[in-house]
Design a protein around this nucleic acid. Structure first.
Length: 299
RNA sequence: GGGAGAGUACCAGAGUGGCCAAAUGGGGCAGACUGUAAAUCUGCUGACGUACGUCUUCGGUGGUUCGAAUCCAUCCUCUCCCA
């Protein structure tokens, strides 16, 4: 498996397709938002030509109302990879969702999926009683984790507590922290731009999205603005515009800013992964060499 | 030519004698992250130092004062109004 990753706007999609075409390989997307249908423009899904050039998976494969997560992704992707590798030597994974890439390469600990009813209950509690109340209970059920969690982060606290309540065991006890083994070899290639240039590309791409009908795309998803899939840069800001809270100019400015911040967070995530081979944008030579050597080694 | 006002950190902008290295917002930087991850959260943003701290800042210069971003003088720049 050749993983092509990088921050948003880095051109990883194009590079991934190039590599896939070269080996007649399918492309497995590792992007938490491109999986959804109806979000082609705002999530910069591969275009028609790219989709035609290589068989793609996990692109517009799920409905925005589907329950999807990194764990679901891991399950579905591994199953798919199993099939794909029976007929292909190489599969190209392309994406920018760090956690999804990790789920693919190392796997997640065997934790239960969220129980919707329990989660809803905890959300209500979070609203009515505050984060303190949840973290206090977490402190009782899992003091070890309580000591290390970011207690000001409701997501972290809520999920940990949720697991404790669901399983009757401390969350930290269920986490092995160990990487699962996979029966395929992995090469990770990252595309890294100078910060300023990347930001310019992002700004430009946002303008292009707007020009090619982002607003229309968002309007068609209006009924679903509350679902998780739509908690996405480009959509939230557009909903604010459509609902009259901000004007279009402000929405565009915020989409650009939030995309830049997203890119920054991606880089922070990738930075600690020492197994990534970074290449400069446009350096097809470097990518080619990495890929050639990797494929050769597998034979 | 006459009159009024304004110049504060990367930007905007508050501060009008000590509590000011200077509110707040924007922008940025760094980080965390295991079933919501394009999400969520944290720290930093004059310089040097881990830190108590030290040093240099509020257009320029010179003064008043124990003490100035804040008061005075003068110069420079900008905006507006009258001509």
């Amino acid at each position: 498996m050749i993983v092509v990753l990088g921050p948003t706007g880095s051109g990883k999609t194009a590079l991934g397709v190039d590599i896939a075409v070269r080996f007649g390989a399918p492309v497995l997307s590792a992007d938490s938002r491109q999986v959804y249908r109806g979000m082609a423009i705002g999530t910069a899904q591969p275009d028609a030509a790219q989709l035609a050039a290589a068989k793609h998976y996990f692109i517009a494969s799920h409905d925005v109302t589907d329950d999807f997560s990194c764990a679901a992704y891991e399950r579905e992707a591994l199953e798919l990879l199993n099939r794909l590798f029976s007929s292909h030597n190489v599969v190209v994974a392309v994406g920018g969702s760090g956690l999804y890439i990790d789920a693919l390469c190392q796997g997640m600990d065997p934790l239960p999926d969220a129980d919707p009813r329990l989660r809803a209950e905890l959300m209500v509690r979070l609203d009515s009683q505050g984060l303190e109340s949840l973290s206090k209970q977490l402190g009782e059920l899992d003091p070890g984790f309580y000591a290390t969690v970011d207690r000001s982060n409701p997501r972290r606290v809520l999920r940990a507590l949720e697991i404790c309540l669901q399983t009757g065991r401390p969350y930290s006890e269920l986490r092995s922290g160990k990487a699962n083994t996979r029966d395929f070899e992995t090469l990770k290639i990252g595309v890294m731009w100078p910060r300023e240039v990347l930001y310019e590309r992002i700004d430009r791409r946002v303008d292009e999205m707007v020009a090619s009908g982002l607003e229309h795309e968002v309007r068609r998803l209006s009924d679903y603005r509350e679902v998780n899939a739509l908690q996405t840069v480009g959509y939230r800001e557009m909903f604010d515009y459509i609902d009259g809270r901000i004007d279009l100019e402000e929405a565009v400015r915020l989409i650009k800013r939030n995309s830049r911040r997203y890119a920054k967070r991606q880089m922070t995530w990738f930075r600690r992964d020492g197994s990534i081979h970074w290449i400069a944008p446009g350096d097809e030579g470097a990518a080619e060499k990495l890929v050639e050597n990797f494929v050769k080694r597998q034979k």
